[in-house]
C-alpha cells in the first residue's frame, strides 16, 4: 500500500473509532432511550419549556415505519456515494487515458524529434 493510501486508511479508522467508542463505552446507558436522535430530544426540551406548544404543521409525507425510513436514508446515502464514486472513477480513467495517449504520442514523436533529416 502506498503511503498516501495508508494515511487515508488511518483517517477512516479514526472516523470509525469516533463513531464506535460512544457505543462501546456505554455512554448512552444513563438515558431512557439510548442514542435517540438529537432532534427528538430537542422536541422533548421544547415541550418541557412550553408544555402547551402544539406543532402547527405536520409533514406532508411521513415514512410509514422505521424500516421504510431507514430505507430512504440508505437511499440518500447510496445516491450520494454513487455520484462520488462515479466522479473519482471517471477522473481516474481519464488520467490513465491521458497518460497512455501521452506515452503513445511520445513513442511516435520520438523518431521525428531526432535531428538528421534536414
Amino acid at each position: 500500500m502506498s503511503r498516501n493510501a495508508r494515511i487515508n486508511v488511518l483517517l477512516l479508522i479514526a472516523v470509525a473509532a469516533l463513531a464506535v467508542l460512544p457505543l462501546v463505552l456505554g455512554l448512552g446507558d444513563h438515558k431512557e432511550e439510548p442514542f435517540a436522535g438529537a432532534d427528538a430530544e430537542a422536541e422533548t426540551a421544547i415541550t418541557e419549556i412550553e408544555p402547551d406548544y402544539e406543532p402547527w404543521f405536520s409533514p406532508l409525507y411521513e415514512p410509514p415505519s422505521g424500516e421504510v425510513e431507514s430505507a430512504l436514508f440508505a437511499l440518500q446515502a447510496a445516491l450520494g456515494a454513487g455520484v462520488l464514486a462515479y466522479y473519482f472513477g471517471l477522473r481516474r480513467g481519464r488520467r490513465q487515458g491521458e497518460e497512455r495517449a501521452l506515452a503513445a504520442s511520445g513513442a511516435t514523436a520520438a523518431p521525428a524529434d531526432t535531428p538528421g533529416g534536414d
Partner: peptide, 16 residues
C-alpha cells in the same frame, strides 16, 4: 447527501 444521511452515535448518548 452522504454525510447528512449518516446518523452517528456521540459522546452525549444521542445521535446526530
Amino acid at each position: 447527501f452522504v454525510l447528512s444521511a449518516l446518523k452517528l452515535p456521540s459522546v452525549t448518548g444521542s445521535c446526530s
